[in-house]
Amino acid sequence: MPSETPQAEVGPTGCPHRSGPHSAKGSLEKGSPEDKEAKEPLWIRPDAPSRCTWQLGRPASESPHHHTAPAKSPKILPDILKKIGDTPMVRINKIGKKFGLKCELLAKCEFFNAGGSVKDRISLRMIEDAERDGTLKPGDTIIEPTSGNTGIGLALAAAVRGYRCIIVMPEKMSSEKVDVLRALGAEIVRTPTNARFDSPESHVGVAWRLKNEIPNSHILDQYRNASNPLAHYDTTADEILQQCDGKLDMLVASVGTGGTITGIARKLKEKCPGCRIIGVDPEGSILAEPEELNQTEQTTYEVEGIGYDFIPTVLDRTVVDKWFKSNDEEAFTFARMLIAQEGLLCGGSAGSTVAVAVKAAQELQEGQRCVVILPDSVRNYMTKFLSDRWMLQKGFLKEEDLTEKKPWWWHLRVQELGLSAPLTVLPTITCGHTIEILREKGFDQAPVVDEAGVILGMVTLGNMLSSLLAGKVQPSDQVGKVIYKQFKQIRLTDTLGRLSHILEMDHFALVV
């Protein structure tokens, strides 16, 4: 994948999101292997301009796509893939009243899908469409860049269908997702969380590099694949309309690839034109409109599966009536509230959605109805927002919020430890010299600072030695090549209790 991002070429006709291997024109390309080798690009942008032909009021008969309808489940399912879809609609009884809503608040519980998330729908649909058009064949390999849930859905379907599955996901995604993927037989590649989507090191860039190296491999490409919004247009939206008897006044959905909100909203605009569509985008993402909503100094966020630093091709923002931004604290607070007060075992993005819903639905009156999409299960986040310690460490809970008995030293300040200034190293000294210094002084790690004293990161003896043994660096290389740029900081005025929580999850903390 090139470091400079080429513009994806656009073909003359058809839909841009065809499933299957992508040609340089962004659509299915038939021909000899030699032709494909000559024409197939190194990668295709996940934010390529959409060429979708959908228009409100256009006859369904003019759609270029294969459409399906929700099917009634048999008493005995032939395999677990038949437990994807037909998820329950559940009334939220307490939270709406707590925040003064007059309307009825309903939750579409997508964590009841077989793999635990709304992404099971698009995973199965992308595979079925690729099999139907002859792209996927027995023994082929599926590769997908994902925040985890699409990966789980694909790995689940691949396990049943017999495909090899490789999932490329950023490091910030939970260990629970990784464990589930491994249990399903998927191979996992992790990428830096802070890598831009168009960087060769991003999950998108690495996935395309693997595709170019592995024979008979395919990126189904949830960011561009029409099967993504079509899955929701054909099934999720129809289920909502049936469950609500066609009567709903507002739908609120958090947005990642945009397939969920695009597919549902398009069908609702056709069948229930008075329904307002509300999009939820986390602070630090750029999906919301108008652009002024996205202006923030924050560039990272903890909530998973929603928000991006690019506009995915499948996201149709014209069908969203209003956007709201959400933050991590309210997302996790509301997710825990949904679990504790409503018994809905949902993930953090569901918290984002409901946090926005109780604001947006203030305009609705008694007798009206708001539906929220709860995308995934708490299963993926047992060591994250479900953990009091994690919430404390991230600053989303305060010590006084917890009532468990603490040891005698818990409320003492870090400054009472009488710490001395640490050994520091410059980023320009060599790895070999740094190892000598650390061994001589008896230290395992040291902060790396520039000549102005600005902290650049941390270097550890173990990481340097393993990097040297693996051949990633040489003793003569500058130590700046092996620094940890993500590390926890703590102030002298913070409590030892807070430091204790940090050290339970990290090997060190830097006192500043």
Results as ranks from 00 to 15, higher is better:
Pro6Ser: 12
Ala8Gly: 10
Glu9Gly: 13
Val10Tyr: 10
Gly14Phe: 09
His22Cys: 12
Lys25Val: 06
Lys30Phe: 04
Lys39Ala: 12
Lys39Asn: 15
Pro41Glu: 09
Trp43Thr: 07
Ile44Met: 12
Leu56Asp: 13
Arg58Val: 09
His66Cys: 14
His66Gly: 08
Thr68Glu: 10
Pro74Tyr: 02
Pro88Ser: 12
Pro88Thr: 07
Met89Trp: 00
Arg91Tyr: 15
Ile95Ser: 02
Ile95Asp: 00
Cys103Ala: 06
Leu106Phe: 15
Phe111Leu: 08
Ala114Asn: 06
Val118Thr: 08
Asp120Glu: 08
Glu128Leu: 11
Ala130Ser: 11
Glu131Tyr: 08
Asp133Gln: 10
Thr135Gln: 09
Ile142Gln: 00
Glu144Ala: 01
Glu144Asp: 06
Pro145Asn: 01
Gly148Trp: 01
Thr150Phe: 02
Ile152Gln: 00
Ile152Asp: 00
Gly153Glu: 03
Ala155Phe: 06
Ala155Lys: 03
Leu156Glu: 00
Val160Trp: 07
Val160Tyr: 07
Cys165Thr: 04
Cys165Leu: 07
Ile167Arg: 07
Pro170Arg: 02
Glu171Gly: 02
Lys172Asn: 06
Ser175Asp: 08
Lys177Ala: 02
Val180Arg: 01
Leu181Asp: 00
Ala183Phe: 02
Pro192Trp: 02
Arg196Asn: 12
Glu201Asn: 05
His203Pro: 06
Val204Arg: 02
Gly205Cys: 09
Leu210Tyr: 03
Leu210Arg: 01
Lys211Ser: 05
Pro215Asn: 04
Ser217Met: 01
Ser217Val: 00
Ile219Pro: 00
Tyr223Thr: 04
Ala226Val: 10
Ala226Glu: 09
Ala226Ser: 11
Ser227Trp: 02
Ser227Cys: 12
Ser227Ile: 02
Asn228Val: 00
Leu230Ile: 12
Leu230Val: 12
Ala231Met: 08
His232Asn: 06
Ala237Ile: 01
Ala237Pro: 06
Glu239Met: 05
Val252Met: 12
Val252Lys: 07
Ala253His: 08
Val255Ser: 02
Gly259Asn: 00
Thr260Arg: 06
Thr260Leu: 04
Thr260Asn: 04
Gly263Pro: 01
Gly263Met: 00
Lys267Val: 11
Lys267Gln: 13
Glu270His: 04
Lys271Phe: 13
Cys272Ser: 14
Pro273Ser: 11
Cys275Glu: 01
Arg276Trp: 13
